[in-house]
Design a protein around this nucleic acid. Structure first.
Lengths: 219, 219
DNA sequence: TGTACATCAGTGAACGCGCGTTCACTGATGTAC
DNA sequence: TGTACATCAGTGAACGCGCGTTCACTGATGTAC
């Protein structure tokens, strides 16, 4: 999966010169992601990672200057993947003949599924965002990139949004949507099911909220 | 401030028998809260806490069985304070003659200010919620208590909510509102100002969103 | 094509640090007679 | 009221654990002649 994400983010990595070490690096990244998905960030320790990657502690420090660099590198990879996914999903060609109301509904559904799939990774990095400005920065840049694509898609549909300030409304709607889904992820992970809500019901209600707020009238 | 929160939550505390030790306990709690507000949860270590509370390590373990108990106890206190605050703010008598639209606006404003004031504490406990089910539980109970009061306040205004399922809508609206404010807290704490938004603008947009979603028509 | 040598990559025991926690002890408080 | 004794509260040095990181070393790879 790393190979799909383009060139390695060399900022956090000692440049690998042999193919062998490039493989090691990707094994380390993949092992880290696997540990996060299975047991959460707190289980990510150097001993655990190198064992899962069939590597060694020294080898790890041959690739990464320190532990933070590992997580930064993985975060970069994840952010790039998110933007790439959105890029495909929001390709204007795919939506040319779809009414705005349906477009919003589809987007909400897509977001719900995406947040579900990425839950463990998002939770992991959320924890880091509070502590390390590097993570906050990447997150902000990623959000901005996604916002750009959403606005581009809605550019020639301004007339369908009856909110007095469509740009601000789109940004706010995106925030409320992502915030609600993030909160849901966090609550779900905590294992208290008093707060559970059905996927379909959630999609229905969030769509309704977004449509009502943006001022999109039924087709 | 501890004295306002009612009886001490004895579940996490070795019962104090002398007045002296009761004072120590409250000093420990207050010191912990102060450290969280000033430097975040990560700065909460036993040495730091006992120094700030002018106590000692042994004295700490005379009151609390372990470190988690300290944070649980503080969380309980914070949750009780939140519910008490909401209880006063949502007293039906205060709102009897206010139109529903204005009520919603006022509530949004109140929520924005509350989240602002409690930002450090909320961030601190959010971190714990993922790891310890005790925190998730208290959070869920608190949210339920607040939901109850909101629904009570809106009980005889059902006719003003044109959403087809008013109860579900109120719950969902509460979630989106708290989620957005939580996310804002997290982003603000991360120190990336590309995401800043004015308090008044936020109140305006969130009010608009809630009113449109709930289906409240202008007075 | 073969060989020598420099560089790169990998190994895992060992270190040091900071944390939560324990423990043997001293001092303060309350109470029974 | 005074005193002796039991209990409660407080002290801080010391311990152990788990982590991130270092380091002296071995093995693999590529390249110059």
């Amino acid at each position: 999966m790393a190979s799909e994400a383009g060139p390695l983010p060399l900022r956090w990595v000692h440049a690998p010169r042999q193919d062998r070490s490039k493989k090691t690096l990707e094994r380390l990244l993949d092992a880290t992601e696997a540990i996060i998905r299975e047991r959460g960030v707190d289980a990510v320790t150097i001993p655990e990672v190198v064992q899962a990657a069939k590597s060694s502690v020294g080898s790890f420090y041959g690739r990464f200057p320190n532990k933070t660099a590992l997580l930064s590198c993985l975060h970069e990879r994840a952010c790039e993947q998110s933007v790439a996914t959105i890029d495909i999903a929001l390709d204007p060609d795919r939506w040319r003949d779809v009414p705005t109301a349906d477009l919003v509904r589809s987007f909400v559904r897509f977001a719900v599924l995406l947040f579900h799939e990425r839950q463990p990774m998002m939770l992991a990095f959320n924890a880091a965002i509070g502590a390390d400005p590097g993570f906050a920065d990447r997150r902000a840049r990623t959000a901005a990139a996604i916002g750009l694509r959403v606005r581009a898609l809605l550019a020639d549909r301004r007339g369908d949004l009856h909110h007095p300030r469509p740009d601000r409304a789109v940004e706010m709607a995106l925030r409320a949507l992502t915030a609600t889904l993030e909160q849901r992820n966090a609550l779900e992970a905590s294992g208290v099911d008093a707060v559970k809500i059905d996927d379909e019901a959630l999609i229905e209600e969030l769509s309704r909220m977004m449509l009502a707020y943006l001022g999109v009238r039924p087709a």
